[in-house]
Design a protein around this nucleic acid. Structure first.
Lengths: 136, 136
DNA sequence: GCAGGTGGTTACCATCCGGATACCGGCTAG
DNA sequence: CTAGCCGGTATCCGGATGGTAACCACCTGC
């Protein structure tokens, strides 16, 4: 089976920058990232684990099952000698790319302000809200 | 002091419909709702509790402190005989209204599909993902 | 004096969520 | 035979999250 889509960039999610201040979440912690991983076509389980650095098999399975159940993702297992399973966006899942992109654009645009606010809050951090990490 | 903005509609968040399937979240469970409550101008603590049916003082405080820390909301306490505290959106917080609106529009547009997917999943519900309720 | 509103705080609790670790059967390459 | 990849599952765990209930000081109105 010839590869149709380019392999995922292991660096597509910078581990330092864009994940921990962003106040948007889609579904669980990984759902947004997964959706974006699938935007160029179907991906295999292990393929998804590459850019989602550090995600464990269990958690990825969990997240994918949730997305499948909600009609965002379609899972296809092929009856081949070597086990192969592919995950692809449904039209519904694909329609999510737009609002996700809007959220990303917002974050990118206001990144400095977000950092500033966080930094300014640190000294007298009342440390109440739970937004220490936010997912994507 | 004259009231500038219309009182909040206690029904502005339908308790049945728009909250529990929506796969978007902003910050913690209440942050998105709070932001939208503040879009027409500053609101007082108790005023916010009305449309946010069921939110307890503690949880609202928590959420507001988080938003304040992240620069989305500004808290102003007035030195008056009767205690008065107002919460208002900062420009940064206001800028969030757009992507939030995009998310809402998406949800509204795909509501039926979301419901269908959920319903179809119920019989053989593998019940793995944590998206039973989503907040936003 | 007492009830009631305002804007919280404190202590406690159940649940959830993500993660670590170990393990699995089927297949293939050496 | 053995090692390793593939796509998971089973079990356990700690911390975050959200909620309840009780309490608080201060002020106003009856």
């Amino acid at each position: 089976m010839g590869r149709v889509t380019k392999p995922l960039d292991p660096e597509m999610f910078d581990p330092i920058c864009p994940s921990d201040l962003l106040p948007f979440r889609f579904g669980d912690k990984w759902a947004g990232l997964i959706i974006r991983c699938l935007q160029d076509g179907p991906r295999r389980f292990s393929e998804l684990r590459v850019p989602l650095r550090g995600i464990t098999a269990k958690v990825l399975t969990q997240s994918l099952r949730g997305l499948e159940r909600d009609g965002m993702v379609r899972r296809t297992a092929y009856a081949e000698p070597v086990r192969r399973v592919e995950y692809a966006l449904t039209p519904l899942g694909r329609s999510l790319l737009d609002p996700i992109a809007a959220a990303c654009a917002w974050a990118e645009q206001h990144w400095d302000e977000l950092l500033d606010a966080r930094e300014a809050a640190l000294p007298a951090d009342r440390g109440i809200s739970g937004r220490g990490r936010s997912g994507w």
